[in-house]
Design a protein around this nucleic acid. Structure first.
Lengths: 153, 153
DNA sequence: AATCAGTTGCAAACGATTTGCAATTGAGTC
DNA sequence: GACTCAATTGCAAATCGTTTGCAACTGATT
């Protein structure tokens, strides 16, 4: 991946205090690195890789391993959602409290611009697939790829 | 991933000679390792990781690096399709000549059983997504996850 | 201020994948 | 059936994303 990003909404989905109280609730410490990571996620509308988060942080702010550990923990607590764009690096997006964070993206294969998509795989078809194969608790992982307006020129 | 597999059809999708002639057509050599790899793919109905292919091969048959190179080449020639189940290992499935190999899977999150799925994301919705965002050449990557009948007991 | 589990930095370890390079080998050519 | 040469291979080292062991450190509570 090279560049990327295209801010649709620069609004913070939730304030830091609400985030930190979620941590406290789980008896997790609010440390400098964690606050900094959450602060970055709060200001990014699209999924970030750990390395991207690392890059956004002031130089000595925190170790890359700490970010990996933090994201793992945040995912376990359901505070971030992990996405996989198929390039071998996990990406994370902050998610609201009640929200399960399930949604998809449209990614430009040339410049890596990301657009959040509201459409989803039709539930009836998914249920049909589950029923036909006798599977339970079926979900899906879905991302779209194409060429963005800018890269078509 | 641990175990896996559940053969729906053990029929070879195409014979070796048709495969090797495709290689010859591209002025690629039919070497021992390549023939062995194709032979394995021919007999597997579900995507295999390079390591799995390696494991199927008689011990000293070929180097793992050779498999990586072979799969890369086969993918470029459009003879295999790469899939990503989100566990960090690429998987490959042999594909027919005219076929673009586009299809999806239903994977058991407990035992890694794989079922090939014929349903696909509705074209109209995909077109709508493409149009709304002014993207061209839009495709998608889609896989389903759930708990298979055997693992529900 | 004392205490202690939860955290962090750092370096080493890992697993998937790639790559440099010298030795080997298909596949036409004579 | 030898000859030639680019394509291919094995092997080891290198990359990349991610994980982990461990000793030092630090929030949060008492």
């Amino acid at each position: 991946m090279k560049k990327a990003c295209q801010h649709h909404h620069d609004l913070a989905p939730q304030d830091l205090s609400s985030l930190t109280s979620r941590l406290r609730r789980e008896s997790r410490k609010i440390t400098g690195p964690r606050a900094a990571i959450l602060e970055i996620l709060r200001h990014h509308p699209h999924p970030l890789t750990n390395r991207e988060i690392f890059g956004e942080l002031p130089k000595g702010e925190c170790d890359l391993a700490t970010i990996y550990r933090a994201m793992q923990m945040l995912e376990k607590l359901g505070m971030v959602k992990r996405f996989d764009f198929g390039d071998g690096a996990a990406r994370y997006e902050l998610m609201g409290e009640g929200d399960d964070g399930h949604h998809h993206h449209l990614i430009c294969t040339q410049c890596d611009t990301v657009v959040e998509i509201e459409e989803c795989f039709p539930a009836e078809i998914e249920q049909h697939i589950a029923a036909k194969n006798n599977f339970k608790a079926v979900t899906h992982r879905l991302e779209f790829f194409g060429i963005c307006p800018a890269c078509q020129k």
